[in-house]
Amino acid sequence: MSRISREEVARIAQLARLSLSEDEADAMAADLDTILGYVQKLQALDTEGVEPTAHVLPMATPFRADEPRPSLPPEAALRNAPESQGSAFVVPPVMDGEDEG
C-alpha cells in the first residue's frame, strides 16, 4: 500500500503553491512514497518525553534597542521587481470570484 497518493500530492502541491502536471504528480508521488517509507524507521524509536530540538545551540532570542536605522531605499528594493509602480510592487488581482484559500 502506498503511503501517499497522487491526489494527496496534488493537495500538498496546492498548499505549497505549486502546480504539477499529471506526469510530475505521478513521479513525485512515487518518490515521496519511497522517502516516507524510509523515514518510517524513526517510529521504531521511543521518544516519549524527549524534548524536541528546534535550534541546536542554547541561545536566547537576542534583543536590540528599537532605534531607527538606515535600511534599503525603496528604489533599490524595487530594482529587481518584475513589475512596479511608484514605490509599490504590482500584482494581478488577489480575488477572482472564488478562492478556496
Binding site: 503553491r17 505549486l18 529587481n80
Partner: peptide, 23 residues
C-alpha cells in the same frame, strides 16, 4: 514572482501568479 526573480507571464490572478511562477 512578486518582488524579485522569475514571474510567469500572463497570470490574471495572484494565486495563479504564485503557482505558475514557482512551478
Amino acid at each position: 514572482g512578486v518582488r524579485y526573480g522569475h514571474r510567469a507571464e500572463g497570470a490574471t490572478q495572484l494565486r495563479e501568479l504564485y503557482e505558475r511562477s514557482r512551478s
